[in-house]
Design a binder for these strands. Structure first.
Lengths: 147, 147
DNA sequence: TCCTTCTTCATACGAAAGTATGAAAAGCGC
DNA sequence: GCGCTTTTCATACTTTCGTATGAAGAAGGA
């Protein structure tokens, strides 16, 4: 909670500063308006991606307004991941499984113990309704929740 | 692929339209610059979030072709299978592995003992230079020798 | 603050996977 | 027939995987 406030505060603050600087430049006609707007657009595009990248555990999943795209436009269907209740960490493990790594290798890669990986995989198998890791990978690919 | 191009095309198109309208309003001084920039910032913030929500870690994956319905011969590289020295029976086993079946299930499906399946898999792992069956599946898909 | 979820870890056990080795039958090309 | 590969199977052993259960700290929402 505190971290969110802090992060947003920082973002807003830096944006305001940038904004004032930009307006100053604009008045002096040292920058065209188009460029100005473009910069801000790009800036907020990046910010948006960053924010979304830090997806929390299903943030208040209200009834979805349809995304109007039955097929995943950009490859991965985040909504399906949420709908299955797959957590961030579990998803990371799933990706490593798909790469063909062993539990031990995944543990080393994610800096946790093999025990933890086993726990994640067990719940993944339940959530994906799979019997084995190979099964889980196939199902996940069919659901397009991994590449 | 087509849908991605379409989506991006639409986004860019609507942005250009919005941009022109905005510039027009700006010239007529019906809107303050701040509001203008703010609208675009918000717009691209949303777009960024949407994109991030739908994107994958993008490890250069080509989309899988339609399963089963068309002849699996198209897209499969028979020459690579031969080059790797993978026999007919081994290839059958490989396909079953990719479906997520256990050794026992594969044995039942192919009417042989589990022992035989293990033998086939062992040589498959060597020929594919894989350490595990999950690894073998990934490699086989990358080599386009299975769907 | 209380409650829940997520993440982490451990231990123990059973099931599945994989390795090593040997061997026998069948098919094929020479 | 002879040599070669493929396919089949077995036994024994090691490693990995998966389940069950309990527990504890961190983060976030109500």
């Amino acid at each position: 909670m505190r971290s969110i406030v802090l992060t947003f505060g920082l973002i807003i603050l830096s944006c305001l500063i940038l904004f004032e600087v930009a307006k100053f430049s604009l008045i002096k006609h040292t920058l065209p308006i188009e460029l100005m707007v473009g910069i801000f657009a790009a800036l907020f595009l990046v910010i948006g991606i960053l924010i979304a990248g830090k997806r929390g555990p299903a943030p208040a999943r209200e009834p979805d307004k349809e995304p109007a795209s039955p097929s995943p436009v950009f490859g991965i269907d985040q909504q399906k991941i949420d709908a299955l209740g797959i957590s961030r960490r579990e998803y990371e493990v799933l990706q490593e499984i798909a790469l063909g790594l062993s539990n031990q290798e995944i543990a080393a890669k994610l800096f946790v113990t093999e025990s933890t990986i086993k726990t994640h995989i067990s719940s993944l198998l339940v959530k994906l309704d799979a019997k084995r890791r190979t099964d889980a990978v196939r199902i996940a690919k069919e659901l397009k929740i991994i590449n």
